[in-house]
Amino acid sequence: MPAIVVLGAQWGDEGKGKATDLLATTDTIDFVVRTSGGHNAGHTIVVNGEKFATHLLPSGILTPGATSVIANGVVVSPDALFRELDSLIERGVDVAELKVSANAHVIASYHATMDKVTERFLGKNQIGTTGRGIGPAYADKINRVGVRIADLFDEKILREKVEAALDVRNHLLTKVYNRRAIEVDVVVEELLSFVDRLRPMVCDTSLLLNRALDEGQTVLFEGAQATMLDVDHGTYPFVTSSSPIAGGVCTGAGVGPTRIDRVIGVIKAYTTRVGSGPFPTELFDEDGIELQRIGGEIGVSTGRTRRCGWDDA
């Protein structure tokens, strides 16, 4: 069973990280792969009584012998990546086996700025974004003005792409939102500061994973967010900006659908949701408060209290 997908089947926070960790500790997993989302995800894992929280990194980063992969479908904040890595290194975790796709798109500081400004501008129609720049980074990807990890290694290309991305954005910031324009030089300098540390991690992860599957190695694809937050099949527009379903794994990792051997959907006995959007079985009474308390329902990434309700089959 070389290719396994673990997905959330509700609105997230079902325990995917725990499921991934349980599968990865069987000594049969060679690769653990993130294929969508960014550091808006949050997975909590307990190892030998010690609690770890991962956001951008795959949960497999805590599994000795497994190679962790951030694939092409993920949007990567280098700043968030290295903060998370440093936090794990301080706690004695070996992170040397991390691989990052050269084709993954970069979340720059201006993405987070636009995310927060536009969300506030929506007023009562706010989506409930984490404000971390995930949506604007995916928007740049679709608009073909995105910066990819590979672009960081060529300053000329990087500068051209940042200029293109900021051209319209600065007009919006200054003329619509009454904010200060973002300087191209500042963004380029910040992104170039990550290059030396990133270089040894970057590779063609699609080629890496397909070769691993050809060799009969076991690859665990770890979902972020969940089915009901899918941009096509979730409760639109209160969804994430990527495709966290099984089909999204194939495009997000660069492997064909015929290579997937098993898909595991994770649910919990009740349902939770972070942020805005419909929730038909939400509880507003003492039962809802009690579920929050017993389940410790606080978002790993956002720190926001999760909305709680009965399971909705």
Rank of each mutant, 00 (worst) to 15 (best):
E183I: 12
V32C: 15
L208I: 11
Y110W: 08
V145P: 00
G65Q: 10
V231T: 15
V46M: 02
P278F: 07
E97K: 15
D79G: 06
G123M: 11
P278W: 05
R211E: 15
G15I: 07
A24I: 07
G303I: 07
A137Y: 01
G254W: 01
I89C: 06
S206N: 04
V231E: 08
P280Q: 06
D232Q: 14
R180N: 10
K124S: 14
V249S: 05
T44N: 04
R262S: 08
I294Q: 07
V93N: 03
L88W: 00
R169V: 10
D311Q: 09
R34P: 05
A253W: 00
S193F: 00
N125I: 07
Y236H: 04
V32D: 05
V147T: 14
G295A: 13
E222A: 10
E84K: 09
R144H: 03
P244D: 07
N40Y: 08
R83G: 14
H55Q: 13
T218Y: 00
V266C: 14
T118G: 04
G133K: 03
L173C: 09
N72H: 03
K51I: 05
P237D: 14
R159L: 10
R259S: 09
I264E: 11
T272F: 07
G247H: 04
F82T: 14
D167V: 06
A181P: 13
L173F: 03
V195P: 03
E90T: 12
P2H: 11
P58D: 11
T281L: 08
D79C: 04
E90W: 02
R259M: 09
L62P: 00
V74R: 04
I142Y: 07
V162H: 02
